[in-house]
Every structure is written in C-alpha cells, then in structure tokens.
Computed example of a mutant assay.
Amino acid sequence: MVQIMGRMFRGMKGRRAHEEAEELIGLVKAAGLGPRHVPVLIGLVLNGPVPVGVLARHMALSPATVSQLVGELQRGGFVDRRPDERDRRRMIVSLHEERRALVERFAWRRLRPLRMTLEALGPAEREHFLHGWRTLVEMMERAGNDDPLCGGVSRGA
C-alpha cells in the first residue's frame, strides 16, 4: 500500500502537471489567495455555474465558508456572481471567463486519472473503490479531529 501511495503521489507531481499548475498557482498567490481556494475552482469546473449552497453541498462545507471563499475568489478575479434569473435572492457562481480555460485545464488534468480508473472498473468494483475512499477520508478526518498535533480538521471552515 505504501508503495502504491508513493507512486500515486509521484504521478500527481509529474513535471508536466507541475509546470501547468505553476501559472494557476501563481495567479492565485498574486491575488492574495491560497490553496484552500483551489477546491472551489475545481468544484465550479465539475458543478458550475451553481448557487453557493449547491456548491457547498458538493464540497461538504458550510454555505458560509463557501460564500467567504467565493467572495475572495471574486475579488481575485477568478469567479463571477450574478443573480439567479428564476430567484433573484440567490446568486449563481461561475468561473470568470478570463480564467475559465486555465482552471478547466488544471482541474481536468488532475481528475483524468480518477475518471479513467472509475471507467475501467465494473459497477461492483466502482462501488467498493468509492467506499474505500470514503472510509479513508472519514478516518483521516477523525484522526485529525482527535490529534492535537494535527490541529483538527474542520469540515465547516
């Protein structure tokens, strides 16, 4: 298992993927943003344009947290917010057109191996694979919450 995880991490840090990520990460840093903002961008690639509440559900974060992240991303020029045409009280979040292509390339390059893996598995194997990953994440969150050295893991912040 350790060898497999090592190979997976090396693959994620490949030279081409690293060079491609430098531009986006550089823009994120230049806007005064950080790594915690990138999952919102990937969430918008996968689910957008969407209301903040829907994005929050997809990310398993609180709407307040996602709203804050979206506000920061909007100030940084990465996302746009516009009123929902059907319900003017709701705001629809989408990737800013000038950043869309870069963010999409970044997201799809990282998600491609996972998509290929899921497509290669049969329905029962896919179910077991996803169950294993959910269990791993839950155990990591539990360990983070219980370990004072890890500082805890907050799902809502």
Rank of each mutant, 00 (worst) to 15 (best):
M140I: 15
S94T: 14
V137S: 13
D146L: 15
G14H: 00
L55Y: 00
G77Y: 05
C150Y: 11
S67P: 03
V45G: 04
P113C: 04
G53H: 00
L24P: 01
A143Y: 13
G122I: 11
W133V: 13
E72Q: 14
M139L: 14
V153P: 00
G144A: 15
A107M: 02
L41D: 03
E119D: 13
L121C: 06
L130A: 11
R81W: 03
W133C: 05
H37P: 05
M12K: 12
V2F: 10
L27V: 01
I92F: 03
R105W: 04
P51C: 00
R100Y: 04
G156V: 11
E20A: 12
G6K: 14
L111H: 01
V54E: 07
M1A: 15
R99P: 05
A120M: 11
R75K: 15
D80S: 11
P83S: 10
P83C: 02
Q74R: 15
M5D: 06
E138C: 01
M139H: 12
L41H: 07
V28C: 01
R155Q: 09
V153I: 10
E104G: 01
P35F: 07
R90G: 00
G34W: 02
L73H: 11
E97T: 10
L27C: 07
G11T: 07
P113G: 05
H131I: 05
L73Y: 11
A17K: 13
L46S: 00
L102G: 04
I92G: 02
L95W: 02
A21K: 03
E98N: 10
V2C: 01
L95N: 01
V40K: 05
G71A: 07
G26N: 11
L24T: 05
G156M: 12
L130N: 05
A31M: 09
H37C: 08
R105S: 09
H131P: 01
R109A: 06
S154H: 13
I92N: 02
H58M: 06
G77L: 03
R75W: 02
S154D: 15
D147K: 05
R7E: 09
E125R: 14
